[in-house]
Amino acid sequence: MSRTFIVTDSTADIPKELVNELHIRIVPLTVMFGEEAFLDGIEMTPERFYPELVKSKELPTTSQPSPAEFTRTYESILAAHPDAQIISIHLSSGLSGTYQSAVIGRSMLDDEQPVTVYDSKSASYGYGYLVVHAARMAAAGRETADIIRSLDELGQRRQLYFLVDTLEYLQKGGRIGKAAATIGTLLNIKPILSIDQDGVIYPVEKARGHKKAMNRIIDMLEQAIKGQKVNVVLGHTADPSTVEGLTDMLRSRFNVADVLYTEIGAVIGTHVGPGTIAVFVWSVGDEGS
């Protein structure tokens, strides 16, 4: 039986202990403060990034890995394991060129090489969960086709929201105007964002104040989940205290099977800023199917 390897990129925001445990290969994106470039998650961790972001006068920029970087990763796996299969799962093509870069990197290999590139149509642990799931299926000896089918099904059970604490970074990134950001800040507006089925970020609605916004997210999840047992992942910007209250709220309203915490990395953090909370929820089904 051939062995299946899972490759992803650094925006999956997977906790390091899971990366190491499941032998997930990560190709990092790059974060740039001015002329200085840092590998996301390696040279620029969330703990380092958010203080730097707050101090910086200019918004940092981010760039995807080159196709050659993906090719090298695939070739290194195949050189060590000639009978290997590879599934390469990446940040939504609607948000970044990373997926396309992986596709081009795969095209530089021989056509018969068993490498499948998968568009997650999501961001952060919205697809990091899929990567971990795929790695567990691979470790159990499941074939590529089975894993891809399971990822498609799991993606349909995903609910996710980002609660943005400050409008400053959405404004700096050009997603909202300066006047709207100023008025929103004065009114203590907290935007709630999500990602649609095409993998594109869209504004769900706005709430005045953090508590009202969190309650609104809970209400929307309740409408979607309808009493099902769920797995929950809560993302934070290197400050776990920001999600403590949300954990209690979710446990009081839902049948929660498992809760995991993760840090929102520098690439996503560049666009949403410090204090952002991410809520990722999956109804529990047959995870091995």
Rank of each mutant, 00 (worst) to 15 (best):
I218L: 15
Y261D: 13
E205Q: 15
F254C: 09
I183S: 02
I24Y: 04
K212W: 08
A179E: 11
G265F: 05
A68T: 14
I277R: 03
A278K: 00
D239W: 03
M1S: 14
L234H: 08
T166P: 01
Y129T: 10
P82H: 07
L29D: 01
Q113W: 09
Q171H: 10
T73I: 02
R48G: 14
E47V: 06
V272H: 03
M214N: 08
S241D: 12
F33V: 06
R136I: 06
M137L: 15
K55R: 15
V117P: 00
A266N: 02
R175P: 05
I268V: 15
V281N: 01
G245Q: 04
H81K: 11
A123V: 13
G184W: 00
G235T: 02
N255E: 14
K121R: 12
R175Y: 10
D146Q: 15
V27L: 03
K55F: 06
S101N: 04
A138V: 07
I26K: 00
V131A: 06
L250S: 04
P28H: 04
A79R: 12
I26T: 03
T116K: 12
A135G: 07
A266V: 02
K211W: 09
Q171A: 09
A12L: 04
L246D: 04
E43D: 14
D239E: 14
S96F: 06
A138K: 03
I89S: 01
I77R: 07
H23E: 13
P82D: 09
V103W: 02
I225R: 04
N231L: 12
V230M: 08
I6V: 14
R157A: 08
P191E: 01
A181F: 08
I201L: 14
I42Q: 10
G105Y: 00
